[in-house]
């Protein structure tokens, strides 16, 4: 301790303090402020840049997501449209088929009816023809038979007998 006190040099202390304080003042004024501010500014800028990059990345991601969503939606819509179209087509076809078959049935039915009616008409005509023919034949036969008088009475008598029987 004594040696330390003995070694203590007042002059060195004095000059050291002066030089150090001057250095501190000068460095503070001309160096440290500029250095610290610049370092801070650069750090802030880097931070900002990184944040901006992150934001851009996030935006890109969002955009991509949106795109995909849109795409998916479009795909879904397309599928829906196609499905609806197919259904409409199917329905149309089936409807048409049904209508066609109905028409056909109707046509066939009316045709059958017409045929039936024609047939009936033809039958009736034939029937009348036959009847007329048979009547005329019968007339001719009767005319010929009844040309003699005896015959007429005989017939009346036969008819009278028949009615008596009844």
């Amino acid at each position: 301790m004594e040696k330390l006190l003995n070694d203590f040099s007042v002059g060195l202390f004095f000059w050291q303090m002066i030089v150090f304080l001057v250095l501190l003042f000068l460095l503070k004024k001309y160096a440290w402020t500029a250095i610290l501010v610049s370092v801070k500014a650069r750090e802030d800028k880097i931070k900002e840049g990184l944040e901006a990059a992150d934001k851009a990345k996030e935006m890109m991601r969002q955009m991509k997501e949106d795109n995909e969503e849109l795409l998916a939606k479009a795909r879904l819509e397309r599928e829906g449209i196609i499905k609806a179209a197919r259904e409409a087509k199917d329905k149309m076809i089936s409807d048409a088929k049904l209508k066609a078959s109905e028409e056909a049935d109707k046509v066939i039915k009316s045709a059958q009816e017409a045929i039936k009616a024609e047939k009936n008409a033809a039958m009736n005509e034939i029937k009348t023809h036959v009847a007329e023919l048979s009547i005329s034949i019968a007339e001719k036969i009767l005319k010929k038979e009844l040309a003699a008088d005896g015959k007429q009475n005989e017939l009346i008598e036969a008819a009278m007998n028949e009615s008596k029987l009844n």
């Binding site: 040099s9 007042v10 002059g11 060195l12 004095f14 000059w15 050291q16 030089v19 150090f20 001057v22 250095l23 000068l26 460095l27 001309y30 160096a31 440290w32 250095i35």
Partner: peptide, 24 residues
């Protein structure tokens, strides 16, 4: 009372100038 510019004082001044020059 000794306020001499000794070797140490001289060195301090020299080094201080060096430091100032470097950082400036």
């Amino acid at each position: 009372l000794d306020f001499s510019i000794t070797k140490n004082v001289f060195s301090i001044i020299l080094i201080s100038i060096l430091i100032f020059w470097l950082f400036r």
